[in-house]
Design a binder for these strands. Structure first.
Lengths: 335, 335
DNA sequence: CTGTTAGCGCTTTCAG
DNA sequence: CTGAAAGCGCTAACAG
């Protein structure tokens, strides 16, 4: 039993246009008429048909979040904070949220749902930085906001946390403690974040005229396991680093695990800095010094930008770069 | 520029019905005709309008996942595995996924989107077990699957992991090691999972004719902090437990943190068992003995059940109860 | 195998 | 302030 405006109209003794006006909160309806209609709607428990509205208004009131496929994702905590941040804003609006994954390897067809008019706009998370498809979206003036991935030279809305600055800060801190042999365990370098964090590390070294020591760069993949392996590897070098910057907390915790298994004291023998400030960072032993990122805020901001893009008022694209923050705990000390 | 079948039809020199048939993969179209149409579609880069299809077919091909609001959620890892599990199955189908949160406190209006025909079915995660709304959904024969929350005496599809059995197993293990004073740190008892895990603990005690020691039950809320507080509390009792079952790993890790801060040896002085087997469980020190849950599979199964419910063939509701598994690591030993 | 007709439930436009 | 008519883009039902 699918009710339509017609049923409501009949019951209330008005035309379907009046019903439509009431539903859409139009001004020009006599209060008593509005009442009648509202009552009829309540009695019948009528709900407007979303498909029909979408068809006539040419708007679905659905947004899409595109997230890289699970295997590419750095941490469940990052993921869930981001999603909840986006959802919170969308939930308070007239929109709904379609959740979708894509494979960063393939040339993703981000716009498929948009072109079917199934969604009105996109939040694209962590696209490859050389992604031509993004440029196409821009050319077709499809409303979208990037999270965690910029495209050079294009006036595109994005929200990001400054990974280069964060990594720079981490290494700076180790340097200021007195460390001169600083290693890094990188994330999966296919992901921009990993490249930027490596960049921050290298930037600092070159600023201080450090020799860039190839050996001290270990290529991890965000996983605890790769942190474990990376630590063992670096510490067993003939000239091992006295401090290690891990590109995420998961790898830092993997490294700490390796240290425990090897009988290497943290921070006495080796200092460790992580990245992300996941909740568990302050519960491991020793508590992990790390870089905090306002992920929840990234999600909220992205949703707000997109909503504004769709609001009707002409709106220029905006670039928002949030700043990460060093959280000093107990996993570092002077060499 | 919104193209319609009419444009394609004109270009291909056929009727719109033929275009429709090609799009829907109907059998009865001459190969050459099909070719012509396909070519026209390609040349114009035409996409069918989802709203129009939804309107005529009376199906949106969208599913909705309803998840308790962030604050009620036990862990980001649980959340993200579940979502990715669901998404994986949905992604391989013709459907899309709308992601939504609800407040378990309020009498949630789960069916709003369904009634607007914006979605075809629901996956409802962790509804309150006394939730009357669920019964209503069932009476209105709205297609839905419950995850992690059953309603007694109703023929409803659900997928769950047996929390009572899992907790029972955990306590059994501690008992078999020789522990006779076993405490528990519970989760937020507003959530069924927490109640079931407490139930499993109590079931075991009563089976062994243990006195149920009120003192040894600490009411936590899933957070690391509450694990920390709970441990301190229990260990400072005049007659402290020699082993503690924590209702999730986060609290177990909080407890281990407290132990470290208090100088209490784990497992020498106190044994600890967790629940969930989050990835970090095997990276803390000592590695955490815990109960593993196949969450990804829960998500996939739920999606599969819902899809089958919508498949057209009459399908009886199914109850799937997956079994958790004890993972023995290093956080327990004989007293 | 292909086309014609009607209508899904709504909103836009124009009349009153 | 209210209503009548037309049409959004598609598919079901029937003809041929």
């Amino acid at each position: 039993m699918m009710l339509s405006q017609a049923d409501v109209a009949r019951r209330a003794g008005v035309s379907i246009m009046t019903v439509s006006r009431v539903i859409n909160g139009a001004e020009n309806v006599r209060p008593e008429t509005r009442e009648k209609v509202l009552r009829a709607i309540g009695e019948l428990s009528y709900y407007p048909n979303a498909a029909a509205r979408a068809l006539t208004r040419n708007r679905s009131y659905v947004l899409e979040v595109l997230i890289p496929h699970e295997d590419y994702f750095f941490s469940s905590e990052y993921f869930s904070e981001l999603i909840f941040g986006i959802e919170k804003v969308v939930h308070d609006s007239d929109y709904n949220l379609i959740f979708n994954t894509y494979d960063p390897g393939q040339g993703a067809e981000y716009a498929a749902l948009y072109k079917q008019r199934k969604v009105d706009g996109l939040v694209i998370v962590a696209p490859a930085s050389n992604d031509r498809t993004i440029v196409k979206l821009h050319e077709e003036s499809i409303p979208f906001v990037l999270v965690n991935g910029q495209v050079d030279d294009l006036e595109i809305s994005f929200v990001d946390v400054d990974n280069v600055a964060g990594a720079f800060q981490a290494v700076q801190y180790l340097y200021d403690l007195g460390h001169r042999r600083i290693g890094i365990i990188t994330g999966n370098l296919l992901v921009v974040n990993a490249r930027h964090r490596l960049q921050g590390y290298l930037d600092f070294l070159s600023e201080k005229d450090f020799p860039e020591v190839e050996q001290w760069i270990f290529h991890g993949n965000w996983s605890e396991d790769s942190g474990y392996t990376g630590f063992s590897h670096l510490v067993n070098l003939k000239d091992p680093p006295s401090a290690i910057f891990c590109s995420n907390d998961l790898m830092a915790i993997g490294a700490m695990r390796a240290a425990a298994d090897m009988g290497v004291g943290i921070p006495e023998a080796v200092s460790i800095v992580g990245y992300d400030d996941i909740r568990l960072a302050s519960f491991v032993n020793p508590r992990l010094t790390t870089i905090h990122q306002p992920i929840h805020r990234v999600g909220k901001t992205a949703a707000e930008l997109l909503l504004r893009l769709l609001s009707g008022q002409p709106e220029r694209p905006r670039q928002v770069m949030l700043q990460p923050q060093l959280i000093v705990r107990k996993s570092c000390e002077a060499p």
